[in-house]
Each structure stands twice: as C-alpha cells, then as structure tokens.
Amino acid sequence: MSETISLILISIGILFDLLGCLGLLRFPDVYNRLQSATKCVTLGTWCILLGVFVRFGFTEIGLKALISIPLLFLASTVAAHSLARAAYHYGFPMWKKSVADDYKEQVQKEEKIAKSFEKPAGS
C-alpha cells in the first residue's frame, strides 16, 4: 500500500518537474523562466521527497527526506529572489510585450544616489 502511494507521489513529482523544464525552454525572458522553473521544479522535488518519506515511514531515511523539504523551500525561494534582483540591476531587458514596470523608477533613483556619492571621490 505505502509503496503504491509513494510511486504515485513520485510520478506526480516527475510530471511537475517536466512541466517546469518545458517552461524553462519555452518562455521568452529571464523573469518568466525563473517563475515557471522555480515553482514547478520545487513542488516536483517536494513530491519526490514526500514519496520517499511515505515509502520508509519514520526511519532515518524518511525523516531526512522530511527535513530537507523546508530547507529546499527556503533555499529555492531566496535564490530565485536574488537572481531576479541581480538580473534587473544588471539591466537585462524584460520581454518586449511586458505591460507594467514600477521598479524602473526606484532603480534609477538608487543609481543617481550611488553616482552622487561616487563623484566627489573621483574628482
């Protein structure tokens, strides 16, 4: 019984992983790729780890699989956030059909402040 449930969970996880990788290939710019990849691949790996936990129960392997779920949550979300922020600050353009961009003003303001700090040091 537990083996069947774990196999079903793992196959659902593989399906979500596949969707995330397809999104990684299909979407047009960095931010959209980051969205699909982070969400789908993280949930797919959660499903695989849950499947391992269901298969082994509260033994050593099962508990370790259970512990790595919150670890994966924190690591993947923070990595996605920092990647998106770095890409925007470096100046990679958004897709040309993008609708709104509220972040631009803020970044330009920050750059102006940074330049005003740099000038007296250089002259």
Partner: peptide, 24 residues
C-alpha cells in the same frame, strides 16, 4: 548570463530529486 544562471540553479534542485530516488 542570467539565463545560464537560472539553468544552473534548477539543475541543482533536480539533482536533489535524483539523489532521493537513488537512496530509495
């Protein structure tokens, strides 16, 4: 470069799934 970094990040998460299945 950012696309390449996204690919590397996702590769890292996929490898965790592979290790889980090999452990099983």
């Amino acid at each position: 470069i950012a696309d390449r970094m996204v690919g590397i990040d996702i590769l890292g998460i996929l490898v965790v799934g592979i290790t889980a299945i090999i452990a099983m």
